[in-house]
């Protein structure tokens, strides 16, 4: 690893100034991803600016009007066990409890995950399905973006120089069910080949409203808008689940890399989508029912 200067700003404003003063620097939250990149000399920053002393980036709170506020430095393990997250966004807590492995959950942060822009991770698709806001702060002020505005491309975000993510907000929602499913190429993998996140409002066997997202297989998490429109207002049968999954799989642009080529990822996206919808509605004739 190349040598660097190490800085520990005490406030968001100070961090922002340091980032502008050292454009060759890297910002570090938990460090799980950055350390790998540093060790392999994929990045060679002049400065590492650690955010760990900034108290404003910590904590998980909830108000009925604004919903959940999760500080950017919240560890995945903290998100997983937070009673507030478990109550108000159970699919997020459930996702965080299965993310990567225990060591990474104890060191990696939700904000760091978003800022690194690595597509092969679980939080971005889950947060997009929850309609989360990403709050960005700098010495110049505050911006609030949706996850699909924040994640702009493969390992790229809307962050501007001197800007850091301070918190994630999950607004109160009219959805009453949801799930985040991940598919790994092998059981020993830590990174998902594909993940599928869904928030929905059920009325008996019918789907009143739905948001669906495919992640990890695409450059950025992708809303399945055609599939959502097809599903809304309909009774969910095994046949409808298959139709929705076919539509959803047709509207993503899968990446090809060492973990899987695009056609395999599209197939797995279709399967993850269909199975998750079947599990949530358990319609007659579905695999979930016939297996029972």
């Amino acid at each position: 690893m190349k040598d660097f200067d190490y800085l520990e700003p005490a406030s968001i404003a100070e961090a922002s100034e340091m980032m502008l003063a050292h454009p060759g620097g890297s910002v570090m939250a938990g460090g799980t991803a950055l350390m790998l990149a540093l060790r392999q000399r994929m990045v060679t920053p002049s400065h590492v600016i650690s955010l760990r002393r900034i108290r404003d980036l910590r904590g998980i709170t909830h108000t009925p009007a604004e919903g959940l506020r999760i500080g950017a430095l919240a560890l995945h393990a903290e998100v997983a066990r937070s009673p507030l997250v478990r109550q108000h966004a159970p699919m997020l807590a459930d996702m965080a409890s299965r993310l990567a492995n225990p060591q990474v959950r104890n060191q990696g942060t939700i904000g760091g995950n978003l800022c690194y822009g690595d597509p092969a991770t679980d939080p971005p698709s889950c947060l997009l399905a929850l309609n989360a806001d990403v709050v960005l702060r700098s010495a110049r002020g505050t911006r609030v973006l949706k996850v699909d505005q924040f994640a702009t491309d493969y390992f790229a975000t809307a962050l501007e120089p001197g800007e850091i993510v301070s918190e994630i907000r999950i607004p109160p929602s009219a959805f009453d069910a949801g799930y985040h499913a991940r598919f790994l190429r092998t059981a020993a993998e830590h990174r998902p080949l594909v993940n599928f996140a869904v928030s929905l409002r059920k009325q008996g066997d019918a789907c009143e409203d739905v948001r669906m997202v495919i992640g990890a297989s695409t450059r950025v998490p992708t809303r399945l808008r055609k599939a959502e429109d097809w599903m809304k207002g309909k009774t969910v049968t095994a046949r409808l689940a298959a139709e929705v999954a076919d539509l959803g799989a047709s509207e993503i642009e899968p990446i090809s890399d060492i973990r899987g080529d695009g056609s395999f990822r599209r197939d797995m996206a279709r399967t993850a989508c269909r199975r998750t919808i079947e599990d949530l509605f358990n319609p007659a004739g579905s695999a979930a029912t016939s297996a029972a």
Partner: peptide
Amino acid sequence: GEVIKSCLSLAVH
């Protein structure tokens, strides 16, 4: 008390 990987963590942290 929480397990982490010490090869991914700086001593200063």
